[in-house]
Design a protein around this nucleic acid. Structure first.
Lengths: 155, 155
DNA sequence: TTATACAGGACTAAAATGGTCCCCAATCGA
DNA sequence: TCGATTGGGGACCATTTTAGTCCTGTATAA
């Protein structure tokens, strides 16, 4: 599946919700309701986003969460990283070299490159994109295809 | 992490190993040894790859596994799909519409598009790429960046 | 000073994952 | 035709990860 965790999904939804009304702070309870998810879970997600520096929180009455920077400066990559840790397709592709099979593996380098390409792609998708209700237009077919075919001829 | 499962990783390594010697069939035992992984696990992986149509198997003495088509016609996407099912970043992004939160979610469409872009990227990486020992050159910085920035201006 | 709201972390239940094993079926060659 | 070789299918278990809940503490505004 190569799937994001469900919490990451929640995080994106909640972030998008905040991004649509960036002025006021949003209480966890309010967000949970808006998004129709259990409060404790939403709360947990919000805490993670704060720790990652994507949200700022304000305690006390009239407090809540707001974006730490503008929606166009927060990327899909940021959100995923906040919840799941760095985007990497294989164990070994984010260094710390804990894999003793490197010798027989023979594909590590290449996966790293693929990971990096995916990360770059996710870096280019911003929260502003995600938050808008009209679907974003990513270059699904031609452009990326072209680019990477060009790359293969470069091998 | 957005990580592939470990089995997928194994699958890629094993496929690469086969791709480097496409003529003879390779027995599971031989592959397990070459790749330094436990035989039952490798065997399981191979079975999945056969079921997905990426490998062909031959029973009996002198039997083994070989590629069902040439290495340049097998993609990273194929391998991942064989082990983990279709590449999709969110539960809902591969249809079957089992998510009752669509109404409040508001980001589903956009994640679908992102998924599709990732899939396209993975489609463009072939087993031939993965198998070669000199690292492949994917357009890590400029090209994709350019493409997707172009896309955002298109919003 | 009190009600509101976040912070941190312990804890549990459920699900996914990784890994092993066993018995059966096909094939080759002596 | 028999036996050795090699894959096929699936059951099974242990472990880890994930999701979700809850409790206790702390900051802040009115």
């Amino acid at each position: 599946m190569l799937k994001m965790s469900r919490l990451t999904d929640y995080a994106a939804v909640v972030m998008a919700q905040i991004a649509r009304h960036p002025e006021q702070p949003h209480a966890a309870t309010e967000l949970a309701e808006a998004v129709q998810l259990p409060h404790p879970t939403v709360s947990k997600t919000l805490k993670m986003l704060v720790r990652a520096g994507l949200l700022e929180s304000q305690r006390g009455a009239q407090g809540g969460y707001r974006l730490a920077r503008s929606a166009s400066q927060i990327t899909a990559s940021d959100i995923i990283t906040a919840i799941e840790g760095p985007v990497a397709m294989t164990e070994c592709s984010h260094a710390d070299g804990e894999c003793e099979l490197v010798a027989t593996c023979g594909v590590a380098d290449n996966w790293q490159r693929v990971s990096m390409a995916v990360r770059t792609l996710l870096d280019s998708v911003t929260l502003a994109h995600l938050a808008q209700t009209t679907p974003i237009k990513l270059p699904v077919q031609l452009p990326i295809q072209t680019v990477t075919l060009a790359a293969s001829s470069d091998l």
